[in-house]
Design a protein around this nucleic acid. Sequence first.
DNA 1: AATGATTATGAGTGGAGACTCACTTTGTCA
DNA 2: TGACAAAGTGAGTCTCCACTCATAATCATT
Lengths: 197, 197
Amino acid sequence: MTSSKPSPGGARPMRADARRNRERILAAAEAVFAEKGPSASTEEVAARAGVAIGTVFKHFPTKQELLQAIMKDLLGRLDRDMAALAADDAPGEALFTFVTRMVEQAAQKRTVVGLLAETGIDLQVASSVQMLREGIATLLVRSQEAGTVREGVRLDEVIALLTGICQGALHAGWDRDLQRRTLAIVFDGLRASADRR
Amino acid sequence: MTSSKPSPGGARPMRADARRNRERILAAAEAVFAEKGPSASTEEVAARAGVAIGTVFKHFPTKQELLQAIMKDLLGRLDRDMAALAADDAPGEALFTFVTRMVEQAAQKRTVVGLLAETGIDLQVASSVQMLREGIATLLVRSQEAGTVREGVRLDEVIALLTGICQGALHAGWDRDLQRRTLAIVFDGLRASADRR
DNA sequence: AATGATTATGAGTGGAGACTCACTTTGTCA
DNA sequence: TGACAAAGTGAGTCTCCACTCATAATCATT
């Protein structure tokens, strides 16, 4: 059984066409699943990627694994975004900015939103989710130190709110304005009393 | 084409066994879809109801219509609950009580939660949703008059929060404690500044 | 360019689930 | 009670989709 992972430690490098197709499939899958949700068919992914269905299954032996690969990618990008935010932004606002951004992008990240909540994820993805959790924890602590979030607020509450709002925005297709107003209410709930607008 | 609706204006009444089976099917469907979500099979509903699958399809020609019938039932019950709350409860707390109760029951009402947000509902269900909206509007106005919810808060924001939190609670399976704590934050966001705990 | 391993191809398989219909059973009413 | 329409039955059809595999095309290496 030869591994077909991107660049595993002890194996020879993938052939050029294989690497190219792998990327195409990932990109296509991300687009298709973002548009139609995870119930979209693997055939559609193959079509959009311009490869035969067998090729998709050669790279990702089950649909699950394909979804998980996308998740890892997306979560990795999110994590990088978050790190950048933590570095650039005013420490008191970084958490709010991150949550706002995530909700805005919820539709594009259908799959992430789902999995952030769901159980039964594999270990690789689980560890990415763990990274995200830790990143959010950092942002939360900073906000609390900066005094923009009340002390009593806990990480699981923030994550609960984040996933809830994302799910809501996703399914109901809230417009920008409603997103903004709804988030304002939640942020008010998180803020320390002294800092209220 | 003979109508098989429960008690339509111009048609003769249903036979006793038909009426009985219709109720059984509705009850079974509600239970099954609550447990497994709307993707549960019609066969499972039939089995739980103790009838053949053909019977289910005689009463509800498509799965869609079965789901919609359940929705109408559930929404009707919710509406009655809400009316009772509006009558009994302290006017300032009724909205909070209703939201709390809905979140608690989210798992049992998987279907409602989904449809409250979803598009492409038929007219009958749409009008039930409309009733619910109006009920929530009433509770909101009362709370604002009682001073427990800030004046600027709008109906669509409340509904957005309600659906979001329900979805979150549903998918992530929050425990009672996390539900309570998360709702507390949201309620804080809704409360008038003067009323903050 | 030849060779052999890797990768791509896409018709085919199996299973699940929505829905049908010819036939049987049951309720109702004279 | 007999007769007929209403209702119930469940094996069978149809469609969709994840996944397979024998064969063909393509890359890398000499």
